[in-house]
């Protein structure tokens, strides 16, 4: 006879017994014996295809049978078998993520990069300050700063919306972060440190380019990192189905 321990959630199906005694040479024999003695436990141990349910673990002398020979693991007379539940859960918000139009974000990035390059080539630091103001205004109004350009492109029919399940707040934060870097650049231009100023402009071009070409938003990753640290105003936690800061995959779009 082998003793098999039943966890509390399955005891209603074994007449309230915490331990039952069955005969068998392998784990399979033992479990078959259990389900023939107590048929109502069957659907709680196995799914419709006859596989052990994900939340059911079988341990033999405190070793998971998945690390032994599975159902074929031999059972000795004095072995102790245990049915151990897997416990997991957690809040899940992936189903309620709002839509964010990533085409509008890309139009914003292209605009920022293009105008900053013009500013650099024409050596007109003032342009980068104007771009910074547009970006800051965008963040304050919770929109991409160059949204009018995107709307114009859509009106002409050059671009199409690309609505993906995402949060907009991290993107607004990233844009605001870019604006702050450009204002810092403006400060350095004012103090006649053009190399530092153009380097900062270069950082913004690089970050916007990274997002545009590789779909990675550094500002968003920083935002989610601040959220993890529990800072106020960073209310959104990283969506669970992707690396924080990376663009949602198209399959996730609904």
């Amino acid at each position: 006879m082998t003793h098999i321990r039943i966890p509390t959630p399955l005891r209603p199906y074994t007449a309230g017994l915490r331990e039952i005694e069955v005969d068998g040479k392998t784990v399979r024999d033992i479990l078959q014996e259990v389900t023939s003695k107590y048929p109502s436990i069957q659907p709680h141990l196995y799914d419709d295809e006859g596989n052990l349910r994900a939340y059911v673990n079988i341990f033999i002398n405190e070793e998971d049978i998945r690390n032994l020979s599975g159902h074929e693991t031999p059972v000795e007379e004095n072995d102790k078998l245990m049915i151990v539940p897997s416990i997991a859960g957690g809040s899940d918000e992936s189903e309620i993520l709002p839509f964010v139009d990533h085409a509008a974000l890309r139009a914003n990035q292209v605009s920022i990069i293009a105008f900053l390059l013009i500013a650099f080539v024409a050596d007109l630091p003032l342009i980068s300050s104007i771009i910074a103001s547009i970006m800051l205004l965008g963040t304050l109004t919770k929109k991409p700063g160059f949204l009018p350009i995107y709307r114009a492109l859509r009106w002409i029919g050059i671009v199409k919306p690309d609505r993906l399940r995402d949060y907009s707040e991290p993107h607004q934060f990233a844009q605001g972060f870019g604006a702050v870097v450009l204002f810092l650049a403006a400060g350095t231009f004012f103090f006649e440190l053009p190399i530092v100023g153009w380097t900062l402009v270069g950082v913004v071009i690089f970050l916007a380019g990274l997002n545009l070409l590789l779909g990675f938003c550094v500002g968003c990753a920083v935002y989610y990192w601040f959220n993890r640290l529990g800072l106020p105003f960073f209310q959104r936690a990283a969506p669970i189905d992707r690396t924080p800061g990376s663009r949602p995959t198209r399959e996730k779009a609904i």
């Binding site: 151990v84 539940p85 997991a88 859960g89 936690a237 669970i240």
Partner: peptide, 14 residues
């Protein structure tokens, strides 16, 4: 993912 998920190991349950 611990800010959105939890898991208790079978060993801890034992």
């Amino acid at each position: 993912l611990r800010n959105r998920r939890y898991m208790i190991t079978p060993q801890d349950m034992i």
